[in-house]
Write a protein that binds this DNA or RNA. Structure first.
Lengths: 225, 225, 225, 225
DNA sequence: AATGAATGAGTTTTCATTCAT
DNA sequence: TATGAATGAAAACTCATTCAT
C-alpha cells in the first residue's frame, strides 16, 4: 500500500540550476508552480487568475511572465509536472514480491490511494482533457510514463494466470483503464455522487469503503472461471 | 442494447408554452439551450462566451438575459436539462425481461452507450463537478433521478443471486458507481488515454472494444465463487 | 487657390445609417474617429492611447472595441478616412479654366494648402508609411484615389505644352511626387528645419514664403527651353 | 556622385576610449548604438523595445542603462549620431570643381544618394520630427551641421548666376529644402507611393528614375529665363 | 563591465451585463 | 419578443527600469 504523498517536493527537471547550499529558500519559480497547481486544479485553466496565483505564491505577478511566458505556458508546466510527479511515485512500486493476487491488490490500492492523496491531479487531468489534451503535447513522455505500470500489470496478470489465480484473456490496457476509472470517477464526480446518494463521499470512511470495493471488484473480475 | 440518442428533442419542463401552429419554428429559448449545451460542454462555464452562445443560437445576445437571467442561470438550466434528458432515457430501460445476467449486461451496455452518444453530458457533468457541484442545487431531483437505476440494479442483483448467477454481498450503490466509472473515465479522459496508448480511442472500433470489456468486466466481477 | 479645410465633416461611407432628424447628435463612432485622428496624428500608432482617444471623444473606452475591433483596426479606419477626405477635396478641384500655367499654379497651391490645413494628414501618412504601409491594404482605393490628380496633371501638362508654355517630356507621375514632396517635406520635418535654420517655420509668413517658392519652383522647372 | 555608405563605422564622439589592442572586438556601447539605430528606425521611439535592442546587440539589457541612462537617452544618442554621420559625409563633398551646373547636379545627386543609402536616417529623422523635435535639443549642432551645405549651395548659385547658367533670386534655404524634399518624400512615403502607382519604388530602376528626375527638375528650375 | 531576477505602473482587451428603443 | 449601443469591472499581458550580485 502506498503512503499518501504529502507536501510535494518540487520536481522540475528543466528548472535552472540553483546555487547549492543557498539556504532552504525555495525558488520563486517553484513557489509559482506550486500555487498554480492549486489554482488550476481548483478553478481550471480559464477560471484561474494569474493575480491569485502570484499572490498565493507571495511573488510579484509579473514574475509569472518572467519565468513562464504566459498563463497557458504556466498551465502546461503545471500539467507536465503533475505527470512527472506521478511517474516518480509509480517508480517506487514493486510488485514482484508476494503472489499475483496480492500484487494486483497492491497495485489497485496504490492507484486508488494516489488519486485520493492527489485530488489536484485528478482535477488537473480532467481539466487538461477538457482542453482537448492540447497541453499534453509531450507525446513521448506520456506513453513512457505509463509503460511501466502497464508492464507491471502485464507481468502480474501472467504470473497470476500461470498460478491459476487469474483467468486468461484479460487485456492489460483495458484493465489499466478500468483500474484507473474505478477510482477516478469516484473522485472526479464526488459532488454529483454525494448529491445523488446523499452522503459525503469525501469522508474518510466513504473513501475507505470505495477503496475496498474497488480492490475487491477488480480481483473478483480476474478470478478464473 | 440501447440505441444511441440522436438529435435531442428539447426537454424543458419549465419552458413557456409555444403558440401552437406557429409553423415548425423552434423557440429561441430552445435554440439558446441547445447552443449553450454545446458551448458549455466544450468550453466549460468560464470558457463559454455568452456572445458565442447567442451567435450559435442565431439570436440576439440580450435574449439570453431575457429568458435566463444570467450566464450562470443558463448554465444551471443546461445542466438540469441534461439530467432530465438522461432520466427520460433511463425510464425506457426495462430489465425485467430475460435472465439476470442478460439484464445486467443490458444495463451496463446502456450506461456505456448513453455516455458514448452523449459526450456533451460527460463534459457537462465533469464541469459541474469542477464547480463543487454548485449547480446541482436541486437536491431532490438528483437522488430521485437515480433511484430508479439503483433500484433496477438492486432487483437485478437479487434476481441473479437467487438464480445462482451472481455472487452475494454486492453493494448496489458501489456497483452503480463502478458501472458508470468504467465508461465515464474512458470518455472523460479520452485525450490523455489516446496519448498514452497511442491510438485514437474516439474511433468506433476502440469504443466497441471498450464497451465489450466493460460489460464483460462487470459480469465477471459478479460471478458467484 | 483652395480655401483651407476647417472642421472636417465626418466622411464615413460604411457607417451605419442613422435615424435622420435625430437632432444634430454626432454618432459616437464619428466622435471616436475624430478623436483618434488627432491622437494618432500626434502620437503615432504606438504612442496613442486608447484611453485618451475615448476620453477625448467623450465616450466609454469599450466603445472603441464595440465599433472597431481593436486599436489597430481603429487606426486603419482613421487612415482610410483621411484618404477619403483628401479625395473628396481634390474632386472639387477644376483645372479646366484659365491657361495651363495658371491651372498648374492652382494645382500646386492646392496641394500645398491642403497639407498646410491638414497637418494631421501629413503626420498620419508618415506614420502609416512607418508601419510599412501595413494599413493601406485597400489596394484599389489608393490608385483610384490619385488617378484623378495625375490625370489632371497630365492634361494640364499637355495643354501647356501645346500652348508652348511647358516643356515636353515631363513625367506626370514624377511631377506629382515632386509637387507633393516639396510641400510634404516642409511640414513633415518642420521641427528639424526650424532648428536648422533657426526660425519658426510654422509661422504664417514662413508658410507663405514656402508656398510661393514651391509654386514658383515648379513653374520654373516646367518652362520650355 | 557620392558612393553609398555601407556598413557605417561607429561615429560616437563621446564614446569612452577603448582599450587599444583589445582584439577587434566592438564595444558593447557601439553594438547597442547600432542595434538601436535599426530598431528605432524601424519601429520608432515607442515601438522600439529595449529588450529587442539588447538582444540584437547581443548584450544584456541592463547594459543599456549602464551606458545610456534611459531608452529616451539612447534614442537621443542614436539621433545625434545619425546627424554626425551625415555631417561627416557631407564634409567630403567638394563642389568647387567643374562648372556650376555640374556642381549643382553633384550636390543634388549626393543628397538623393545619401538618403537612398541611409534609409534608416530618413526614418529616424521623421520619427524625431514626430516627437516635436524634442530630441534635437543640441541647438547649435544642427545649424552648424547644415551651414556647410547651405554655404555650398549659396556659392554654387552665385557661381552659376555669374556664368549665366542659373537665374537670379533663388533663395538658397528654400532651394536646400526643395532639394532635400524631392528625395526625402520619395523614400519617406515609399509605401504609399508604391501602392498608389502600383509599382515597387524600392527597386533599383525606380530609384534611378527618381534620381534622374530630381536632378533634372532642380537644374531646369534654376535655368535663367 | 556585466547579468538574471524582480517590479510598478500602465495598456490593450475581454466579457457579462444593462439601457433605450 | 427582439435589438444595437453602451458600460464597469476585471483580466492578461507589456515594458521600462531597478536590485542584488
Amino acid at each position: 500500500m502506498s503512503k499518501p504523498i504529502s507536501e510535494p517536493e518540487p520536481i522540475a527537471p528543466a528548472a535552472p540550476k540553483r546555487r547549492a547550499g543557498r539556504k532552504s529558500e525555495v525558488s520563486s519559480r517553484d513557489l509559482l508552480l506550486r500555487a498554480a497547481r492549486k489554482e488550476f486544479a481548483t478553478k481550471g485553466l480559464e477560471g484561474a487568475r494569474v493575480d491569485q496565483i502570484a499572490t498565493k505564491a507571495g511573488v510579484n505577478k509579473q514574475l509569472v511572465y518572467h519565468h513562464f511566458s504566459s498563463k497557458e505556458a504556466l498551465y502546461q508546466a503545471v500539467v507536465e509536472e503533475a505527470y512527472a510527479r506521478i511517474r516518480a511515485e509509480e517508480a517506487k512500486l514493486d510488485l514482484s514480491e508476494g503472489d499475483a493476487r496480492d500484487a494486483m491488490a497492491r497495485l489497485v490500492a496504490f492507484s486508488f490511494d494516489y488519486l485520493a492523496a492527489n485530488r489536484d491531479f485528478v482535477a488537473l487531468l480532467t481539466d487538461a482533457n477538457f482542453h482537448q489534451g492540447r497541453h499534453l503535447k509531450t507525446s513521448q513522455t506520456l506513453p513512457q510514463l505509463h509503460s511501466h505500470l502497464v508492464d507491471m500489470i502485464k507481468e502480474t496478470l501472467a504470473r497470476g494466470e500461470a498460478a491459476g489465480q487469474f483467468r486468461a484473456d484479460v487485456d492489460p490496457m483495458q484493465l489499466y483503464i478500468s483500474i484507473a476509472g474505478l477510482g477516478f470517477f469516484y473522485f472526479n464526480n464526488i459532488h454529483t455522487l454525494s448529491s445523488i446518494f446523499e452522503r459525503k463521499f469525501s469522508d474518510k470512511e466513504q473513501i475507505a469503503d470505495r477503496r475496498a470495493h474497488v480492490v475487491d471488484f477488480v480481483l473478483k473480475a480476474l478470478r478464473p472461471d
